[in-house]
Amino acid sequence: MAKRAQTDPNAAAMAGGAGSMLTLDGIHKSFGQLHVLRGIDLEVRRGQVICVIGPSGSGKSTLLRCINLLEPPDDGRILLEGKSIAGPDADEDVDFVRRRVGMVFQQFNLFPHRSALENVTIAQEKVLGRKRADARAKAEALLARVGLADKVNEFPDRLSGGQQQRVAIARALAMDPHVMLFDEVTSALDPELVTEVLDVMRELADEGMTMIVVTHEMGFARGVADHVAFIDEGVIVEEGEPHEVLGDPREERTKRFLGLVLGR
């Protein structure tokens, strides 16, 4: 694995070339006394879909939040498209990161005072400086793509959870991200609304989007992911192809977790 290469800065730089989208090297993060991430190494190639699974409190969400610098890591380095964005040699700033990394949240976090359309246009206009008409056209296309062409003028409180989450995906996609982070995006949804969101994500994966998906949806992980990482207590306990990690886990902790989740 690329893991060994990352300890050597030159090799890491090489890993940051060609097909590498994101390289995490020894990421640590603490909140006060709580040591949440205890040295995470992860390599994400362009177009790859990585599912991150693990018990609650294991650090999965924090990991995503470190990647787009919502929570700057305390230690370790992150390369995004070969550029260092966190660590002693960081040469790119938050703007560089946020323009390349889109994020979708568990609680949707749509802007409640803005219509679905405006949720998708506002950052295009204010951050990217796109013209109103262009932003609008793009937003309408994206909302149609997530199946909400008839909801463009609705406000979030008029939309179901599944619809809100699809608007949130469109909002992130409007910024033309190179990587999408999904933080338990179906966990706050009624069961019958989960599918419509997962379907959108599946299409996105099919189109070649690089995705890091923190999820409890094992079916999605098995069906869509190229790579699954099991995190517990702030470290990656086990990772590999879905059929290995989910079908035939080596580690005792992975087995126990899957036993609890899948009820077997």
Binding site: K60, Q106, P112, P156, D157, A188, D190
Partner: peptide, 25 residues
């Protein structure tokens, strides 16, 4: 009236309501 109608995206069925975006999970 607005909040009672469900002005906030209430965390729906299944699991406790996590404070928005604060969970370390």
């Amino acid at each position: 009236a607005r909040t009672e109608r469900g002005g906030r995206p209430a965390p729906v069925a299944g699991g406790p309501a996590p404070a928005a975006g604060q969970s370390a999970g």
